[in-house]
Design a binder for these strands. Structure first.
Lengths: 354, 354
DNA sequence: GTGAAAGCGCTAACAA
DNA sequence: TTGTTAGCGCTTTCAC
């Protein structure tokens, strides 16, 4: 049973100490207190120390809201991710957070759950409370993007749009590495299991894959779209296998892990019967079964770059970060015969957990 | 090459439209505009529609900062997690976000990266910009907790403190289920691989495990502390094996997955040689190798409950959510002989990927 | 170097 | 129903 000091049961909510309180207590004007606290070298050292001592004694904390009104700056930055449950964002968040903190800013996060509507809503609501925002993997149509960009500085991650600064990972090169890897393994055909149609990187990845496949003389099929979650990997796997391709490339690792799970369930061996590749190298890609061959990108570095660009007001910046293929156990030489599903479309061809 | 409408290359940052602009344009007083927009039934329908039309035409967006100053309310809520890279928080975030949105609030997230100092800093900075905050798995000492609680409404998740509302998952019952499961499998001894000493749930879990072990006549050892990350699971595994226990219970799944990885590397079979159990049932626990036996908790429901309590000002609320053991493949009957490391302490006893 | 005073954009009495 | 006005807590000229 909680016990507490007042009848409410909660720590007593005390009235906030304001600049006026400090001023009165210190016997100076509020403007002097303001200066002593924010522009210490514009007051005499005697006054400065006295005021600071009083402020400390009273446990004064500036009201960020009130500070922000006249100055127009909150020293808060927002990072809106399209899906907080995608581990790919971990590095991004950590990198952005570190860089923001280093510059004296507080980073707040928002999750738009894969919905453009939620994203726009969030940007609207949080936008007027921060000094700038980074939109990661934004699904916003260009006009909506322009609407939020018209109010605050904005930087895009893995998305490009006219007039917007952006930081992107090199999808084209990552895709090239996938195709060359598969070509070297003798794969005659690949299928791309596409992601959300409104995701910029889906188009990028699909097009790059198609282009490099053509160059390598590999048959290319684009399937989907599929929601980029583990659960939707099941449907993606089925469609991929039905396509007869010997290698399946998923829009991202979440989808790829779901594909792996479904294939295991169907008794289709990876990589013996079919190879599987993803993008992002997320948490889990190294310990799923089999460990996934995937395209790694420096997401923490991306997070830092995003904040740099945002604070540097380099509104025309376009940073491209290198990617590299991490080969694990989900890719191998092409099978002699393309894989096919068992004749019982909905039942397992092997026990779920062998 | 980005092309844009003005020389800056960015979407032109337009001066924000204020209430005054709308008022002037509509030929009414600012207070009328304010009412027409926020208290629509306190103006005549003619005025309301006229004002709203003008506001829409001018693309007016209220300045949340300015709104917040007189009213003292920002309609924003903060959720501070101790580690955004722990997938256990996914459900929590989604649940809290949904409930906050339903109540007309915007949820902002903060990550304190396992550091009490960062947490306190974040709470301080963001605290004055939100109407309340939930501290998830807070590592803050009680006095620091009381300091932030003295300013804003606060609700705790998986942490309890005098005078604070809290939502916790039933560690005691989850721990009981683990011990009974292991007892049924004939395990004579278990080792708890402890988490951060400043984590409330570490103490809870450890104590519950010890109590239930005693009741079941099982030898109990507490080891650690270990940082709750996959990487630190390696050290934890070594210490766990050295203890001679036949079952290893990790503070959480992150640590457990790291333990699994290390044991595979050492050539110690799970669950044949040793059983492993975690807490949280995170993303990855179902597809790691072997799939992990772990304690599931309703984190999405927890997220919703936290917001309910926060907005309901039920400052004395103490919600306990049920947990249940999800048995997968990392637990089995106790081995005839306790496991031991290979005689080459630092080398693999088997190939890394058999 | 310090103080007085005018806002920042909005809300909420209070008047009319 | 609508307008006038006084702040919310702070920053920032502008005098002194």
């Amino acid at each position: 049973m909680p016990h507490s000091v007042d009848s409410s049961g909660a720590p007593s909510r005390t009235e906030a100490v304001t600049l006026h309180d400090v001023a009165r207590e210190a016997g100076v004007a509020v403007s002097t207190v303001s200066r002593a606290l924010s522009n210490p070298d514009r007051v005499s050292s005697r006054t400065r120390e006295h005021v600071q001592a009083v402020a400390r004694r009273l446990d004064y904390r500036p009201n960020r809201i009130a500070q922000a009104l006249p100055s127009g700056r909150t020293r808060m930055l927002a990072l809106l991710v399209s899906d907080i449950t995608n581990p790919h964002n971990f590095g991004l968040i950590r990198g952005a957070e570190a860089q923001a903190r280093a510059a004296g800013y507080t980073l707040v996060l928002g999750d738009s759950q894969g919905s453009a509507e939620l994203e726009s809503d969030h940007a609207d609501r949080i936008g007027s409370a921060v000094d700038g925002l980074v939109l990661a993997s934004s699904r916003l149509p260009e006009d909506a993007l322009r609407a939020v960009g018209g109010r605050r500085p904005v930087v895009l991650y893995n998305r490009e749009a006219d007039g917007f600064a952006s930081v992107v990972t090199d999808s084209d090169d990552g895709s090239r590495q996938i195709v060359e890897h598969l070509a070297a393994l003798g794969h005659p055909s690949i299928a791309y299991l596409g992601g959300p149609p409104d995701a910029w990187s889906d188009a990028e990845r699909g097009q790059a894959l198609e282009r490099h496949s053509a160059a390598a003389g590999i048959a290319f099929t684009r399937l989907g779209p599929f929601s980029p979650t583990v659960d939707h990997g099941e449907a993606a796997a089925d469609v991929g296998i039905a396509s007869g391709a010997t290698a399946l490339i998923a829009f991202n690792d979440l989808l790829a892990i779901g594909v792996l799970r479904r294939l295991e369930h169907l008794g289709i061996a990876v990589p013996a019967d079919v190879s599987v590749v993803g993008y992002d190298d997320i948490f889990g890609s190294d310990f799923c079964h089999p460990p996934l061959t995937t395209v790694t990108s420096p997401s923490e570095q991306a997070g830092r770059a995003l904040i740099d660009v945002l604070l540097g007001s380099r509104h025309d910046a376009r940073v491209v970060l290198p990617t590299s293929l991490r080969v694990r156990d989900s890719t191998a030489p092409a099978p002699a015969h393309p894989p096919s599903r068992s004749h019982r479309p909905d039942g397992p061809a092997a026990s779920r957990r062998p």
